[in-house]
């Protein structure tokens, strides 16, 4: 008979192996689904991976956003605060950065301080937006999953309200978008051709900073303890609500920063185009990485490729929706696969 036993300690190789196997199984599942529904699975996989290699800059452009968002999500998840609102916090960051770029005094709009101030505004905006959920959680224990998620919709409609209404540019020739930002607001591209920009180094710096903060600092230790058990933390004299508020502010602030970098480096203006599912993608990155900052960096590149595939697949005649489905199935297979790293399945003779 088959017996399931809890492991006392998970071997290291399993911690690495289960996510990889889970991703492979999810890819197989998607391929089978493509075949069953009469699509060209080989061509789809070739487009996802081959296309990503050719367009590696576009992949990394997505990864920059994912790295920063995911680090933010990981900070909240570390202490078991479920921030599902990264997309909304990112949009508020985009709005705040755009507000500075468009409406700051002329002197500032031409100076090298413009980008840093856009970034600060975005961090504060995204952080405060996240604090609506975080504060309600800390003070009244309001379910943050629902509030942070629903705030995504509110943020999206604020963005649309602005670009269709008061912020609509005079030079936008009828399109719902703002006027272009001044030249000083643009984070430059790294290479002469391609869109990969210096935001990549910001993202890498954030990964390294948070690796040390989360794994080596007193604060990182505190939020880990809180994540493992609220009561233990309380006996240790740690303030739960203070830490929830700090973590949510940082989480939302990073998402806001990702938004600022996005509008500054890529769009150069505020427009209503937004992948509102990017918060979900960040959650998948975080879970695949087991909340480890350095691993988040690597997984963000992989997921960046999947996001790029979403835009690239239709050209190859494959429904782009398969990329979305693939993301969902990866998360499912990862949490299912975790069973084998937490439990031992043994065959016992009766």
């Amino acid at each position: 008979m088959i017996k399931v036993e809890k492991r006392l300690e998970t071997p290291k190789y399993l911690l690495i192996l289960t996510p990889i196997v889970s991703v492979l199984v999810a890819l197989m599942f998607s391929a089978i689904l493509l075949l069953v529904t009469g699509e060209d699975a080989a061509r789809a996989m070739n487009t996802i991976f081959g296309g990503s290699l050719i367009n590696w800059q576009e992949v990394l452009v997505n990864s920059v956003t994912l790295m920063i968002l995911s680090i933010g999500v990981a900070v909240a998840f570390k202490m078991v605060v479920w921030n599902i609102g990264a997309a909304g916090q990112m949009m508020i960051g985009m709005i705040c950065a755009a507000g500075v770029a468009l409406f700051a005094p002329i002197a500032l709009r031409d100076s090298i301080f413009l980008i840093p101030i856009m970034a600060v505004a975005a961090v504060i905006g995204g952080g405060l937006w996240a604090l609506i959920s975080g504060g309600a959680k800390a003070i009244w224990n309001v379910n943050e999953v629902i509030t942070s998620l629903l705030l995504n919709y509110v943020a999206l409609y604020i963005l649309q309200f602005l670009v269709f209404g008061p912020w609509k540019g005079v030079t936008s020739s009828g399109f719902p978008q703002t006027d272009p930002f001044p030249a000083a607001a643009k984070i430059p591209a790294i290479f002469e051709t391609g869109r990969l920009h210096y935001g990549l180094f910001v993202a890498l710096a954030i990964i390294i900073i948070f690796y040390f903060l989360l794994n080596k600092s007193r604060w990182g230790y505190e939020i880990r303890v809180i994540g493992e058990g609220r009561n233990v933390a309380r006996y240790g004299g740690m303030s739960l609500s203070k830490n929830i508020i700090i973590a949510m502010f940082i989480s939302g602030g990073l998402a806001g920063l990702a938004g600022a970098i996005h509008v500054s480096a890529l769009e150069g203006r505020l427009s209503p185009h937004m992948n509102t599912d990017i918060g979900y993608t960040a959650i998948i990155v975080v879970w695949l990485s087991r909340l480890h900052p350095l691993v988040i960096g690597i997984v963000s590149v992989f997921m960046g490729a999947l996001l790029f595939a979403e835009t690239n697949l239709p050209a190859a005649g494959i429904p782009s929706e398969i990329a979305k489905l693939l993301q969902g199935s990866i998360l499912f297979f990862v949490i299912a696969g975790d069973f084998f790293s937490r439990y031992k399945v043994k065959y016992v003779k009766e």
Binding site: D277, K324, Q327
Partner: peptide
Amino acid sequence: LAIFGTGLSYY
């Protein structure tokens, strides 16, 4: 489930 169900129905 929320992500997967949405993705599957879109597909």
